[in-house]
Amino acid sequence: MTPAVSFTKVSRHFGAVRAVDAVDLEIAEGEFFAMLGPSGSGKTTCLRLIAGFEQPTSGRIEIFGENAVGVPPYRRNVNTVFQDYALFPHLNVADNVAYGLMVKGVAREERSRAAEEALALVKLPGYGARKPGQLSGGQRQRVALARALVNKPRVLLLDEPLGALDLKLREQMQEELKSLQKQLGITFVFVTHDQGEALSMADRVAVFNDGKIMQIGSPQEIYRRPATRFVADFVGSSNILPPDFMQRYAGQRRWGSLRPEHIRILAQTSGDGVPARVAALSYLGAGTRVSLDAEGLRLHAVVDSGGALPAPGDAVVLTFNRDHVHVMDEPA
């Protein structure tokens, strides 16, 4: 099957800055795809390359098998939900939503019917007459979504779509976006710096750093088997184990990672395991996060809040199942 979006050795350089550097990427049709990374990692530039706001310095971009290099944004059947929503302040909600149809020359009646339908889809029926300035942040975002969806794009791009919302609304929108995507079957590509968001929403995640893709995989793969230290560090809160440590306790001279929930803390001063000292505790609700100092290596463990907790300053011994230690691809 033709991928919805494919990048072949795509680079985008701004002077000496390599915003995107020889990226290869394939996004399947109907997929919910997340591009995750810190700011400046190249994820937004990748999105803009798909939308057509940027042109690659080199490489090939295809959308459903058709060459997209040199094609302006208005000729791509791809729509974007902008981070700041970019609603047109001079138009009311209905005209905002119908904008894409208007410039394509769709008759007034037909486009207002389509706009109303799109507004109903994002749960804002009857809001057509309002101005964007009269809406809340969450409502603006729904309008932005409707404005993009009304054009029946083959790919929908979302640039940090939930960044400006507060936590409660963000969680609600995550679920809605997910179910909307399932319902419509459109390929969604969204950019975020929030790993929780990427993992909970996407079918597949690409982790970006320094203009390159560090790893592509399902959320489970990314979370459980990070390919590099950067991924392990950025996605979730894994402990990163240096090669020396790995040599001693896991028998391999490679970089490794270990999730905090897989560390057991034994209240004893000696014995089999890693000697450590408790540095601090932080209560997280169901679990408690324990910061540990294992001979200079800073580790974190999460233990059940209900059980016996060590106190800061205690000498303890740490144990873990070797199977839980993930050996990363990155060479020592």
Binding site: P73, Q83, F88
Partner: peptide, 21 residues
């Protein structure tokens, strides 16, 4: 904002339509 112009182009308006609308 610059993103408004991009939004217009993204929605299918070419340079002239974006200027006018």
């Amino acid at each position: 904002s610059g993103s408004m112009i991009e939004a217009s182009m993204d929605l299918g308006a070419d340079a002239f339509q974006t200027f006018r609308h």
